[in-house]
Amino acid sequence: MNSPAPILIRATGLTKKYEDFVAVNGIDFSVAKGDSFGFLGPNGAGKSTTMRIIAATLNRSSGSIEILGKDPELHGPQIRAHLGVVPQQDNLDQALTVTENLYVYGRYFGLPKKFIRAKIEELLEFAALEEKRDVKVEALSGGMKRRLTIARALISEPEILMLDEPTTGLDPQARHILWDRLFRLKEQGVTLLITTHYMDEAEQLCDRLIVMDKGSIMAEDSPSGLIKTYSTKEVLEVRFGSDKNALVAGELEALCERIEVLPDRILMYGEDGEHLLHTMKESGLQPLTSLVRRSSLEDVFLRLTGRSLIE
């Protein structure tokens, strides 16, 4: 029915080296208009580096990247005018109040004062910061600062909103408020680029994501597609005590599709976790604890890299 959404960002063989260290290693990806696109990977995967290259504030070492058909190294200011950037570490203006932060940011884009003043009211409501409008930034909570940073990034009505670890360091309640705001933006058709090392965040927010590790892309798909390809429907987690886990591993392996032996527990992959538990008990193995759950992106990452997302 509809023609496919236009591609806004296209990277091929994108590489960034810091001296001899390769932080981003020849990655390819493309982001279509309206996508909610995620970069999932542990610390040091190269997520922030990739984001900064897209945001036209870091030069690549090789490969190519086009944002709205332009090279960020040649058209930095023009590309940045399309983007709203929420960096990993907040860099709000500590000397200014909430509204002043929004105001000056709009001015940096060259927007007229009248336009900005109207926009500020809208954004204060969006970020639920009306009560804090004249408060200096340093008096805000972590969640409020993050919401203000997002509001600030929206002052120029960007087509693409880039969020580098939007909820790292926030408590669960603050995270959920933030996710809610990001959903609203997604509904409005804003293209979202999100990096995270939280698999639940990636599952909640992203339509499509790439799994990154050590500068490379390990896989790319929708969250459910990744789980389907790289994991089973369910997982049975069992503990036999840390000294025994390794001993029983051989026996367990025969019972299921795949097994991961972690220091404190064993993960058994299969279509039906309860059934797996049943057969295990029948063959005379009694775990200290057991838990059946659905597969998550964490399992995908473990399968792809042999390590867990959060070390």
Binding site: L74, A81, F109, G110, S156, E157
Partner: peptide, 17 residues
């Protein structure tokens, strides 16, 4: 957006980067 129009108006000007 207004921000894009403002930035695009400088394309081709000396030192635009």
């Amino acid at each position: 957006s207004a921000a894009v129009a403002i930035a695009d108006a400088r394309i081709g000007k000396y030192g635009e980067r």
